[in-house]
Design a protein around this nucleic acid. Structure first.
Lengths: 340, 340
DNA sequence: CGACTTTTGGGAAACGTTTTCTCTCAATGT
DNA sequence: ACATTGAGAGAAAACGTTTCCCAAAAGTCG
């Protein structure tokens, strides 16, 4: 009760205020706030009471400074309007929240040169960073990775054995979709690409190379596309005139745009043309017709990403093999045997 | 160069390291790092060089402690899987990033009792909080608001004149949609609701009360729905059998689910039934048929939210009138005159 | 050339915690 | 009765910055 009145003007109540109120030292207050048992029960109670009366809550930044950790992780994504990254963000966020961690977001707006900067900044404020499908080159990534250490990569890998990676096997998934079309009888197939800098796009292209080796009878062409509704829609003419009977689209979003464009042009799906998407986004079953797609188990991915992050935060030298996620076919109404 | 070698073992380089390297004091280093001009050019250069060689970057948490600000804002949303909140999050995030601020996210998972806690936590770590469509009661909100001070509310308002609010006039928007149906000749209309706790749902209901007053000839019924694809889809039977010729759906997401369900039941849109959505989400023009909807200017909303936040962060006693956003009709293929 | 400003940069306090030391005091054992 | 231990609480250092306050050096003016 020494000088508690003096700093009534002070903005926020600090540990000192409750110490004064309870007639103990800063140290003791800190101890009871952290559940340290080496403090006399009656004093502890007095401190609790004082804290409650003053509505004292420890200042996290003071705490972070002393503890050297922020209980926050950063996540950097190329584009927050992309449903895939939205899902990942969400799943990582709720997994982290379950363990009392928060997430700080950074959107690089698909400009790869921003990624390193954002990631570095995020790392300095957070206990770790998850780098989501970075667009930067492999060299840049290799250089950046060690500086970020508690780092988990999604859809990219690195030489560094200390950074866990979670990769979806996009190549394999698109092979499955292609095989599905072949089984239905399609021989002329086109791939409508995603963004050029996207690693998952090149994985699909790789998978398709393998695909044409396995099925030499198919004739595959590649049409430039994108990963947005508009991009899919705008590709309608190119798709309509390409002569293929089955179209593998980069993802469900572009596929939905394409579906609409085709319908406007009087092309029926799946009667005239079979379409596949990718990712099995929530809306994929509700397009018309429902999209045949490759489902990637995205909620597992988010929570596993957090699990790996936590391992590396708690034990500095944890090692993780890279985790693989296998997409599985989800067959719906947008694919059928070709016309004739 | 005194004892620079001594702490090679130290983890991260601090201001002291570069001070030692440049042969100046902490204070001077701090000054040059912050672009303070009161330091001799040659010394400044020496410090810059030392900082560069050591790759020194100021520790943000030390900085935050000294400065009393984190250059971070928190945003709490009821559900990150909801496209509306995803958009807001994204737009706020990029607006804030332009001014060098970051955003910390918190997802309350639609449980209203979590909101106050999450918001309080976020506020302690951040310079301000944006509370997005909180589900809590008005009383709780009034009580919470003053404790969060740099606070901006989205889709809710408060008595407190110091907290800016951004509200979309959902009531007015749905009246416009209803009027559109009436003009087309519809008399029996149904509203497929959103989540009960959603303030924007009750605003729509209020708007509809007004709507039936303005158009006494219409017969309006209310059907319980939701804000997800699945909820819309599951309402298909109820909608099909309700006898209405025009359906106002809570939002585009549910409307898309409904569209699919109706199609499966052989009900044609808009020939047999007119459907409207709400929000003009990116995919709304690509459903089949394209959704007539009420567009809310969501990117303006996000950036204005940030602008208001910035005002209140920089000037403690800023006042803002609440900002209103007027949805406008976006007429597409899902509405047409009723059959007979 | 001396007194009086103005730069300029260092020392130390401040931000709000946690934690290591250290000290006191009581209890226990011999 | 005395030394030894142990528990419990306070003082102070630490975390990494910024900034206030001074002192010294340098410049200005009469």
């Amino acid at each position: 009760m020494k000088e508690a009145m003096a700093d009534r003007s002070r903005r926020r109540v600090g540990i000192g205020d409750v110490a004064a109120r309870a007639g103990v030292s800063h140290a003791t207050v800190s101890r009871v706030m952290n559940g340290n048992t080496t403090v006399n029960a009656s004093i502890a109670q007095r401190v609790q009471a004082a804290a409650a009366e003053l509505k004292y809550k420890p200042n996290p930044v003071g705490r972070s400074l002393a503890l050297g950790k922020t209980e926050t992780i950063g996540i950097v994504v190329p584009d927050l309007s992309n449903p895939t990254f939205q899902s990942i963000l969400r799943d990582v966020s709720i997994a982290a929240a379950r363990d009392g961690y928060r997430v700080l977001i950074a959107d690089s707006s698909e400009v790869s040169s921003e990624e390193a900067i954002l990631a570095g900044e995020a790392r300095r404020r957070c206990d770790g960073v998850v780098l989501c499908a970075p667009r930067m080159s492999q060299d840049e990534l290799e250089e950046l990775a060690p500086t970020l250490h508690p780092l988990v990569l999604i859809n990219r890998t690195t030489e560094l054995s200390s950074t866990p990676s979670l990769v979806v096997d996009y190549g394999h998934g698109i092979q499955k979709l292609g095989a599905h079309l072949v089984e239905l009888g399609h021989r002329r197939i086109a791939y409508l690409t995603g963004p050029e800098r996207s690693a998952s796009n090149v994985q699909r292209l790789r998978g398709l190379e393998k695909f044409v080796q396995d099925y030499p009878e198919v004739e595959l062409q590649v049409i430039p596309g994108g990963n947005t509704y508009d991009a899919g829609n705008e590709a309608s003419d190119a798709v309509a005139s390409c002569g293929a009977t089955g179209i593998l689209v980069f993802n469900d979003v572009a596929a939905m745009g394409l579906l609409h464009g085709l319908s406007e042009r009087g092309i029926r799906v799946p009667e005239d043309l079979s379409i596949t998407g990718y990712d099995d986004m929530p809306f994929a079953r509700y397009t018309m017709p429902g999209l045949t797609t490759a489902a990637v188990p995205i909620t597992q991915l988010g929570s596993l990403a957090w699990r790996r992050m936590r391992e590396h935060i708690t034990q500095a030298n944890a090692q993780s093999p890279t985790d693989h996620f296998e997409p599985h076919l989800e067959i719906r109404g947008s694919t059928a045997p070709p016309k004739a």
